[in-house]
Amino acid sequence: MEIFTSRPDPSSTAEKNGIQTRRRKLVVAMTGATGSILGIKMLIALRRLNVETHLIISKWAEATVKYETDYTISNIRALADHVYNIHDMAAPISSGSFRIDGMIVVPCSVKTMASINSGICDDLISRAADVMLKERRRLVLAVRETPLSNIHLQNMLSVSQAGAIIFPPVPAFYIKPSSVDDLVDHSVGRMLDLFDLDTAEFERWEGWKKQ
């Protein structure tokens, strides 16, 4: 289990080629689907990349974390810069006027995907995702479910047409993983590629290798 006790200095990467740049900001939402380690590793990767994180954890995500991992909820909250209650509809990330670069729902349950697709906005995860869509910002849904029903597939198509990216964390066997961590790191890295963020912590495909 990896725990960080100090935060990176925001000013350390705030200047590039002599030009002051704004620190990148992402919303990370964790739902109750299996695969909570994906959300945890996402927070760790973003912290290393000095990206400001705005975290929402659902009640069932907390239960899944306790069942699947050795992390405590306080450990996970400590990885984020800002943490919001899922019922806090007045949070900054619930407004389109708040400047943010995108959002990742990881893992994303089919229930959450359905809520986002329908535009219900009955909690902060679905509202923040709705903001991403209406403001034309990047929204990535790491949907964890199998097999998929017609309802799931229709929701995937519809929310994709609205601008979201569906990213099922499918294992990449070509990296010849030696552990589950290898597969998790690959999925996390590929998700962050979608935000032009490079973790440099997974193997990329470079063609067939000679045996």
Rank of each mutant, 00 (worst) to 15 (best):
residue 109 S to Y: 07
residue 103 M to R: 00
residue 70 D to G: 07
residue 106 V to I: 15
residue 130 D to E: 12
residue 66 K to M: 12
residue 5 T to D: 07
residue 135 E to W: 13
residue 54 H to N: 12
residue 168 P to R: 11
residue 104 I to F: 06
residue 176 K to S: 14
residue 175 I to Y: 07
residue 129 A to Y: 00
residue 132 M to N: 04
residue 43 L to V: 04
residue 195 F to L: 03
residue 110 V to T: 14
residue 205 W to L: 07
residue 67 Y to W: 14
residue 201 E to Y: 05
residue 117 N to Q: 15
residue 3 I to S: 03
residue 113 M to V: 04
residue 106 V to F: 03
residue 188 V to K: 04
residue 27 V to K: 00
residue 140 V to N: 00
residue 14 A to P: 02
residue 97 S to L: 08
residue 156 M to E: 03
residue 87 H to E: 14
residue 203 E to L: 08
residue 13 T to Q: 10
residue 156 M to I: 02
residue 175 I to N: 04
residue 115 S to D: 11
residue 180 V to M: 15
residue 93 I to K: 01
residue 121 C to I: 09
residue 47 R to T: 07
residue 151 I to G: 07
residue 191 M to S: 00
residue 26 L to G: 08
residue 120 I to W: 13
residue 190 R to S: 07
residue 21 T to Q: 12
residue 8 P to G: 09
residue 30 M to L: 13
residue 130 D to I: 08
residue 139 L to I: 08
residue 134 K to C: 09
residue 39 G to L: 09
residue 202 F to C: 02
residue 177 P to G: 14
residue 5 T to I: 09
residue 40 I to Y: 10
residue 116 I to P: 00
residue 188 V to Q: 02
residue 150 N to R: 07
residue 201 E to S: 14
residue 48 R to H: 15
residue 43 L to A: 03
residue 44 I to E: 15
residue 115 S to F: 03
residue 115 S to A: 11
residue 196 D to A: 14
residue 144 R to M: 03
residue 35 G to Y: 02
residue 196 D to R: 08
residue 35 G to D: 04
residue 80 A to M: 06
residue 40 I to C: 05
residue 118 S to G: 08
residue 70 D to A: 09
residue 149 S to F: 11
residue 51 V to I: 13
residue 168 P to E: 05
residue 81 D to I: 07
residue 207 G to A: 13
residue 112 T to P: 09
residue 52 E to Y: 13
residue 151 I to C: 12
residue 81 D to M: 10
residue 202 F to S: 01
residue 210 K to L: 15
residue 126 S to K: 06
residue 195 F to Y: 05
residue 57 I to A: 06
residue 114 A to G: 04
residue 174 Y to F: 15
residue 6 S to G: 10
residue 28 V to R: 02
residue 65 V to C: 08
residue 120 I to K: 11
residue 128 A to W: 04
residue 98 F to D: 02
residue 187 S to M: 08
residue 149 S to M: 10
residue 24 R to S: 07
residue 44 I to W: 09
residue 196 D to E: 13
residue 125 I to P: 00
residue 38 L to S: 06
residue 155 N to I: 04
residue 13 T to D: 11
residue 83 V to P: 01
residue 46 L to T: 05
residue 174 Y to H: 11
residue 182 D to M: 06
residue 199 T to N: 01
residue 103 M to W: 00
residue 16 K to F: 14
residue 75 N to I: 11
residue 84 Y to S: 03
residue 127 R to C: 04
residue 136 R to D: 02
residue 112 T to H: 07
residue 7 R to M: 13
residue 157 L to I: 13
residue 119 G to T: 13
residue 114 A to V: 02
residue 195 F to N: 01
residue 158 S to D: 14
residue 10 P to Y: 10
residue 157 L to W: 03
residue 154 Q to M: 06
residue 192 L to R: 05
residue 163 G to A: 10
residue 25 K to V: 05
residue 81 D to G: 06
residue 56 I to K: 03
residue 8 P to C: 10
residue 24 R to K: 15
residue 172 A to N: 13
residue 27 V to A: 04
residue 23 R to D: 00
residue 24 R to Q: 11
residue 81 D to R: 09
residue 197 L to T: 06
residue 62 E to P: 01
residue 108 C to Y: 01
residue 146 T to D: 01
residue 184 V to T: 06
residue 87 H to N: 13
residue 169 P to E: 12
residue 174 Y to R: 12
residue 138 R to N: 06
residue 162 A to F: 14
residue 130 D to S: 15
residue 22 R to M: 03
residue 169 P to Q: 11
